[in-house]
Amino acid sequence: MKDRHFSCVVIGVSAGGLNALTVIFHGLSADFPIPVVVVQHEKSDSEDLLAELLNYKTDLCVKTAEEKDTIEGGVIYICPANYHLLIEENRTLSLSVDPRVNHARPSIDVLFETAVSAYGKELIAVILTGASSDGSTGLRQVMDNDGYAIVQDPATAYSRIMPEAAIKACRFPDEIVPLEEVSARLNDLCRKGYSL
């Protein structure tokens, strides 16, 4: 058993995302101590309503990520449509209009790769439902850097393609959990003094 201390959760989700995020955010404890940063694939011209919608579902503060936001504990940051979301090593957020990655902007891989540089083994990365393979490479890098990888059980996913691709890419993610249990796991992992 070793003590683990986590400083950030990153989540990647695509098709079926609104429902999955609603379930998870609803279950996060009101004193959830660390930041949550989310990339959800969206139609490129959709307005940034997601954060507003999700704000009603949780006790935590949900906001659309803005460039140079300082990442704060207990806040959920949602990527705006049509921009990549990156985490700087000084733990602030950046947006970019770089070309699409895996046909996607925002791309989950871009968020995960930069989150690894910023948080290393203090990172928890979660791949949820989706009909693409975005996020697999990023999740693999999270594991290679001793971060903690969670994948939604494909059987509970609206679309199983993304979780399956992620499991295949990392072979043995730390956990494969049903959607309903993801938030409970996150609550546990981030509780002070929790040992794996």
């Binding site: 990549h84 990156l86 985490i87 090593e89 950046s94 970019s96 871009v110 790769e113 930069t114 540089s117």
Partner: peptide, 9 residues
């Protein structure tokens, strides 16, 4: 320039 994006490129 913002470092994360520069580093990626």
């Amino acid at each position: 320039y913002s470092r994360a994006s520069l580093k990626r490129r």
